[in-house]
Design a binder for these strands. Structure first.
Lengths: 210, 210
DNA sequence: TGTACATCAGTGAACGCGCGTTCACTGATGTAC
DNA sequence: TGTACATCAGTGAACGCGCGTTCACTGATGTAC
């Protein structure tokens, strides 16, 4: 299982000890994404993957839990940044909302295991749920903006946002859980949800996607 | 962790050896439902829970995998039966469709761990996906029936069914993954999906729920 | 009615494995004097 | 310019644990003669 045998992995130069931390973190992220199970991640397997002694991990992480936690914070940060960046680059409220949801979906399909782990309940009991909370609030704000500008019919923002998020989460989860089935395009399904659940007009959506 | 210390568990009478099989299966189901992780189920832990020697499990199950598989087939059967029974007891197409989806949601909330495991991708690669396939087809049929009787606008049944199932799965998963949050009622959310995604009229739904 | 034997339901010791974590260490590289 | 020493980056052996699985077994109960 020694996938990283590029070079024999000599020790890092003085002052660059943090590099190993990055390598360990990257390996942990890769392995979590493959297993989709944070309980199955073993220190020894990560060490093997990186090509170091298992004990070397303790130089940078207090214990197994600390490593898992650090990996998930990294994944969470990466996802949030992607979504935020996409929304910032979109010109109008509908495009912003759409970009947000689509980028989340794409991220999940590129990192299906990590998406699963981030949404795992065993984890959400230990890690602060600020990740999902932040996403919740931002989605609500994006919908509110659409309503304010007359691009979506006024309504109960919290409820509509909740319905949209649940539906999208289901659409993404369905594909993540059975990746080998020939699913219809996620993008189109998300757009249908934006139309039917939020009330965005198809023409406005068309414009946003152009 | 010896939760079942009611009586010291004497051996079963002759010809009743299958009873142990049931006890083991029931314990496995309980533990799977709690852990929500089929990889974490250990033969030894199940044996401890039942109050028998670990080796006794091999009398009834070839190995750990066979036990996990049997447990999931049991869970799957139970869920399918509940859904089918609910649909059979409903008077009209809208009530049938509604009962189907609501019972699925309720089953999932009563057995959150099992619901997760049943939808796990690691599993769906090994077990035949007939479970979900069956559910898919039946949901589509229920929607088709609503359209045929003019209770829902005509449309692409496969697409609408897919959108509904994904949305409901998301609504259920959201609650299953974070059970301690104060979520709004699942029933109402499902009804909104039936209205907005399938096009069932609120009044017909009102009638079906009465 | 007695007895040998088969069957049934289950046990206990033992195996090798991978795991998280600890501990004392190694050897190269920089720094103080 | 030389040398003692601190620091840094990382190692290897060892621990105790729970695991899946194997093996030879035990002791009660029914059945054939």
């Amino acid at each position: 299982v020694n996938t990283t045998a590029d070079h024999p992995r000599g020790r890092n130069p003085r002052g660059q000890g943090e590099r190993l931390r990055e390598e360990v973190l990257a390996a942990a992220l890769r392995m979590l994404d493959e297993s989709a199970d944070h309980q199955a991640l073993s220190l020894r397997a990560v060490a093997r993957e990186v090509g170091i002694a298992a004990t070397s991990i303790y130089i940078h992480f207090a214990d197994r839990d600390a490593l898992v936690l650090a990996a998930l914070e990294r994944a969470h940060g990466d996802l949030m940044e992607s979504v935020q960046h996409a929304a910032d680059g979109a010109p109008d409220p509908v495009a912003k909302l759409r970009a947000r949801v689509h980028v989340l979906g794409n991220w999940a399909r590129q990192h299906p295991g990590l998406y699963k782990v981030l949404n795992d309940r065993a984890l959400s009991q230990r890690v602060d749920t600020s990740f999902k909370l932040e996403l919740r609030q931002q989605t609500s704000a994006a919908i509110q903006l659409c309503m304010d500008e007359g691009l979506a019919p006024a309504g109960d923002v919290a409820e509509i946002s909740f319905d949209l998020r649940a539906a999208v989460h289901g659409a993404v989860s369905t594909r993540v859980d059975e990746p080998d089935r020939p699913w219809p395009p996620l993008e189109e399904q998300i757009d249908r949800y934006l139309i039917k659940l939020v009330g965005i007009s198809p023409s406005a959506l068309q414009q946003a996607s152009a």
